[in-house]
């Protein structure tokens, strides 16, 4: 089973994502902000992290940096899922080493297929 870590501070969004990925046979972990995400990631070594950018405490960029630094997480893919959709934002996210950059609002179906594509 693939492990997915969903990092977002909007509980309603998280709820939909959690339901969807569980249904697709993912092992789903939830974090409300960056620091929580890093703890869980270190512990569970997820295959993919779905990461929001604008979050309290530790934001998505910082979280990505920490994940990239972490040796245990070198196989973990990181996907940004954010409302920030300006070209400069996308470029910045990819440059920092994100594997994918997806914008909100998103189609659940498409999101799932993008994640599957990334993991295969």
């Amino acid at each position: 089973m693939k492990k997915i870590l969903i990092v977002d501070d909007e509980p309603n969004i998280v709820m939909s994502l959690e339901y969807t990925f569980k249904k697709k046979n993912f092992e789903v972990y939830i974090a409300r902000d960056g620091s929580e995400a890093l703890q869980i990631a270190e512990d569970k070594i997820p295959d993919v992290v779905l990461l929001d950018i604008m979050m309290p405490n530790v934001d998505g960029y910082e979280t990505l940096k920490q994940i990239k630094k972490n040796k245990h997480l070198k196989h973990t893919k990181v996907v940004f899922l954010t409302a920030k959709n300006k070209a400069t934002d996308i470029e910045k996210g990819l440059q920092m080493g994100a594997d994918k950059y997806l914008t909100k609002p998103f189609s659940v179906k498409k999101l799932v297929s993008e994640i599957n594509e990334l993991l295969n």
């Binding site: 339901y19 409302a83 909100k104 609002p105 659940v108 179906k109």
Partner: peptide, 25 residues
């Protein structure tokens, strides 16, 4: 403003999609 508006829209959209797909829910 755009960001703030997107958040509830995203949530509504995702929930709606889940509901449409989730006959077995």
């Amino acid at each position: 403003v755009a960001h703030e508006l997107k958040t509830p829209i995203t949530s509504i959209k995702a929930a709606s999609e889940v509901l449409v797909e989730g006959d077995d829910m």
